[in-house]
Each structure stands twice: as structure tokens, then as C-alpha cells.
Simulated scan of single mutants.
Amino acid sequence: MTVNPEMLNFHVERLFADLSAGYGGVMVSIGTKLGLYKAMEAQGPMTSVQIANRAGCAERYVREWLNSQVAGGYVNYHPAEDLYEMTPEQAMILVDDTSPVYLPHAWQVVASMWADEAKAIEAIRTGRGVAWGDHDGRLYCGVAAFFRNGYSASLVQEWLPALDGVVEKLERGARVADVGCGHGHSAVMMAQAFPNSTFYGYDVHEGSIDEARKVAAAAGVSERVTFEVADASGYAERDLDLVCFFDCLHDMGNPVSAARHARSALAKGGSVMLVEPAAEDRVEDNINPIGRLYYAASTTLCCAHAISENGTHVLGAQAGQRRLSDVFADAGFSGLAEATRTPFNLILQAKA
């Protein structure tokens, strides 16, 4: 076989860019935890000494860190004056933890994947699973924080209104289950927006349920939002107006059982809201950075948990609407309709 030098260089450059991004993720995490980004927010051009002093860090380290940020395009540099500056757009991504595009926490998921590399290798070699609760602790906080801001920007404002007849019920007073609730941010957001409704959150991971209760208490909605350790086929509430699965159904080994249980728990006229990672039905249509991210996470996290449950399916994070529709058809629903979508998510509705 003859090696094409141009193609070789193309692939080397692409892999090296990925390697650079991996190093850059460590820098983002360090900068966030040390308050270096925060020290630059809305300050205009600054010297490395000023930034180090504001963050309470050693200047020589900070200068090198700043140069890594400049090289990555995360911070601007003024060479004539040797000054560094953070723009408002950069601050939305790196400083404002309420912004829908705030991303530093996402690198905690990557860190957990590296920490669990040996588990992933063993799982892939043997075909055994790795349960969600058996991963490095940074996974749970990283996932919760990563999805929280996207939900905050879209769940109440866009996704729920896109569902047929759901907002009206929530305004009057509905009973809602959040299955696979994680740290409970989605249930709490809905409770804050719809004070006449009652919410029940369920997750198999006890540590996440403990954290969800704290989130609800801090938001002042504990009287209307309760959390319990239960799997998707084991919660007892009935006559529910809405059952939600936020970015979790594809992790389940028995998604048909989960959908069937949701159907049995719904009141007449109730709905399932299914939020899943954005994906087309064919691999060739998912060749993009988002598809790459989700396939990678699916390899070590989503498929691993589904396999650990010894279930009927291993959907993966890029299941696509056709396979999800098949799940709901097998569960007895007449259809699964797309309500809306974002670059990151599909928002689907199934009616009882």
C-alpha cells in the first residue's frame, strides 16, 4: 500500500488539533476553579500581574496559562501593550454559570471518562457493563451542570410550549414525573414555573437523589417536588398528566418497559415528554462534532449502563427518532411525534 503524504499530514494535523483541545480542557478547568476567568470579566485589557493579583495566584503560572488561552482563542491578546482581555462573548461561555452556553463543567465528564478508562477497557473487552453509580464522581456533577443550563434556557420557554396541550395542564395544576431525574434541576425548574403543579423525581442513583433534594430545598419548592430512589419501571405514582425522560431513556437496558410503565402511570389524555440527544437515524448523517461527542460518551457511559442492566436494548446516545419510535410502539403508544429540536436535543411527545 502506498501512503499519500498529503492525506497523512491531514490526519496528523487533525489528531494534533484534538490533542491540543484535550490539553486545553485541562486549562479551562484550572482557570475556572482558580477564578482566573472571573478575574478578567468586564475588566477590559489587563496585565498578567493584575489578573494574578485579582485571582490570588502566582503571576508566572498565570502568564503561561493566559498564553495558552490566547493560543486557543479563549482570551484576546494586545501584543503592543502585552495586555490580555476577555470579551463579553467569551465571558458567556467561560464565566457566567447561568448562561445557556456556559461549558467549563462539561470537562468534568471528560475527566471522569479518563479516570474510568480501565473500567471502559475491561467492559469493551468482556462485553460487561458499567453501572452509572460505578463511575468517577465527577461524572454526576459534570452531567448535571452541563444539561442544567440548556434546560434552563429552553425547557419552560420553548420545549414545554411545543408539546400539545401540556402547558395548559401545568398552569391549572398537573401531576408530573421526572424519570431518571439526576440532580433534579429539570423538575425544580418546572416547579418554579408552574406553582399549581406537583412533581415527582426518580433515579436509580442514590447520590443524585440526595443532591436533588438539596436543589429543591435551595429553590424553596420541596413541598411540591419530591425525589425517590426508583427505577423507570418501579415508581408507584399513578394518574400522572406528564411523564418526562430527560436525556436518559437511551441509558436504560429496558426502555420498552420504562415506556410501558409510563403509559400505565398516565392519566387519560396524559403525555410522555422524551428529550434525547440530537441524532439522525443513520451514522453517515451524524458525522459532525456533536455526533462525535455523543458517540464517545455513549461508548463509555450510556451503552455501558444499559448493558449493566442486562436488558433488551442498548440504544446508545445517538439512537435517532426511528429507533425511539419503535420503542414507544412496542410499549403500546400510537405514535411518537417530534415537537421541536435544537442542535443538541430532540424533543418528542407521545400521548396516552
Score class of each variant (00 low, 15 high):
G253T: 10
R322G: 01
F147P: 05
Y37W: 14
E168K: 11
T299Y: 11
A120P: 01
M40Y: 02
L83F: 02
L240C: 12
R54A: 15
A91R: 11
E237L: 11
A39S: 13
G22T: 12
M113C: 08
A265K: 06
D18W: 09
K351G: 04
S48W: 00
K38H: 11
M1V: 13
L348R: 03
V110L: 08
L163S: 00
S48I: 00
L324R: 04
G207K: 05
G311T: 13
I287F: 06
A306G: 10
E168V: 12
Q157V: 14
D203V: 13
E158I: 08
V130L: 06
Y84D: 05
V12R: 13
T300D: 01
L15N: 10
G72Y: 01
I307W: 08
Y61I: 12
M190R: 03
T87E: 00
S308H: 09
G44Q: 08
P79I: 14
L242F: 03
G165I: 06
Q157T: 15
M190Y: 01
D116C: 13
I307H: 07
D18Y: 11
D134V: 12
F245N: 03
A265S: 15
L19Y: 14
T198G: 05
H305P: 08
V3A: 02
D97Q: 15
E81A: 15
N53G: 04
I307K: 13
F146A: 15
V3E: 01
L274P: 06
A296K: 08
G72R: 07
G332M: 07
C302T: 09
A317F: 00
A218C: 06
G184N: 09
T2K: 07
S48V: 02
D136Q: 01
H78S: 13
Y200C: 10
R14I: 02
Q157W: 04
L346C: 09
A306Y: 05
M113F: 02
E168R: 13
C57P: 00
A317H: 03
G56Q: 08
H205F: 11
A162V: 05
R63S: 14
A174Q: 05
L139M: 11
N4K: 02
G142C: 04
G311W: 08
R60F: 02
F333K: 09
Q50V: 12
S68K: 11
V75F: 02
D82L: 05
G25W: 04
E338Q: 11
G25T: 12
Q50F: 03
A106E: 02
L163Q: 00
V12E: 06
I347W: 00
Y23H: 09
H105W: 06
L103H: 04
E338R: 09
L240P: 09
L346P: 07
G24N: 13
V283A: 10
V275T: 14
V188C: 03
A258H: 04
A350F: 05
G133R: 10
A230R: 15
I124K: 11
I209K: 03
E59R: 11
G320W: 00
Y102F: 15
K214V: 15
H11N: 02
E338I: 01
V179L: 09
R322M: 06
N76K: 15
H313V: 13
V110E: 04
R125N: 14
E59N: 12
A339F: 02
V101P: 06
Y61M: 06
Y295Q: 03
G269W: 05
Y295R: 05
